[in-house]
């Protein structure tokens, strides 16, 4: 097992940070990890995006260059949001970005000036997200916008979520696992210590044949507690359900139905998890 007694000299955790600077991301199973990656990242990847760079409406460059003529891109842009939506419908290959270079420069500059030494990665990224979303309708227009689903989530949201699930003192574990039938498809363990995320890992599948996946979740919980600390929240579901519903807020009712059908299981109970986190999601 990887040695995780690593410390970063001179670090001062922020009051709002949850990602420990020395958070260990260790002993990851390649197959399980690849599945998480594909689930989270693949829908957002595109090499066929259409980009327009302009200066206060005057188009400077278009990429790919052939689109300037084939898509009938005007020499002057009056309403970038409307144009992006229109081009997206016609381009059909991926997102459309219409970028005003001065606003991009300014937002990038602001994105650096808002950094403080107290920021952890999560809080800093959320701050940058807010800067970029402020430009999303006219300055740095991306259609569809990759950050749109995160609108309203403030930099202290991860902190609040952690507060709702994990006791401030001592060590605790949050566990997620996905099954394909009775086979463990992927898992992830979040280990917390004194309020900070200190460990991220996967858990191995059972060496023996599994006949009941819900029963196997108890084995996983025991393994997680053996690896790190008491599991304070667990969420387990079937792969098909995850792939169908994704993490989109608009599918909340679908997830509710899945829990009714036994395709989603919470620990200590689904109801308890919802009770502790639902207020946060409703107010963001």
């Amino acid at each position: 097992m990887t040695n995780i007694n690593e410390t970063a000299a001179g670090d001062t955790p922020s009051q709002l940070a949850i990602l420990d600077p020395a958070c260990a991301v260790v002993d990851l199973d390649p197959t399980q990890w690849a599945r998480w990656y594909d689930f989270l990242m693949q829908p957002n990847r595109s090499i066929d995006s259409l980009y327009i760079l302009h200066d206060q409406g005057k188009v400077i460059t278009v990429n790919p260059i052939r689109a300037r003529e084939s898509m009938g891109i005007p020499a002057r842009i009056e309403d970038p949001a409307a144009l992006a939506a229109d081009l997206y419908q016609r381009w059909k290959r991926g997102p459309v970005a219409i970028i005003e270079r001065n606003r991009l420069n300014a937002s990038m500059d602001k994105g650096q000036r808002i950094f403080t030494a107290e920021d952890d990665f999560l809080s800093y990224i959320i701050k940058i997200k807010e800067v970029l979303l402020a430009e999303a309708t006219s300055g740095v227009v991306i259609h569809p916008h990759p950050w749109a689903g995160f609108e309203g989530i403030t930099y202290d949201f991860p902190f609040k979520l952690r507060k709702a699930l994990v006791p401030d003192q001592g060590a605790a574990t949050i566990l997620l696992a996905v099954y394909s039938g009775t086979e463990l498809w992927s898992s992830v363990l979040f280990g917390f210590k004194d309020g900070m995320l200190t460990l991220l890992t996967t858990l191995p599948a059972s060496g023996e044949a599994v006949t009941d996946w819900q029963q196997d979740t108890l084995r996983l919980i025991a393994a997680a507690e053996n690896r790190h600390a008491k599991v304070v929240a667990g969420l387990f579901c079937q792969r098909d359900t995850l792939l169908k519903l994704g993490l989109r807020p608009e599918n909340a009712s679908g997830w509710f139905e899945a829990s009714q059908q036994g395709d989603l299981v919470g620990f200590p109970s689904t109801a308890a998890l919802l009770a502790s986190t639902a207020p946060l999601f409703s107010q963001k």
Binding site: M41, N44, R45, S46, I47, S49, L53, I60, T61, G94, P95, A97, R101, L104, N105, M108, D109, G111, Q112, I125, I128, L132, V140, I142, H145, P146, W147
Partner: peptide, 14 residues
Amino acid sequence: EGTFAFQWLLGFYG
């Protein structure tokens, strides 16, 4: 045509 620090943060599109 610009300076553009850490432009990848514009999204997950690469």
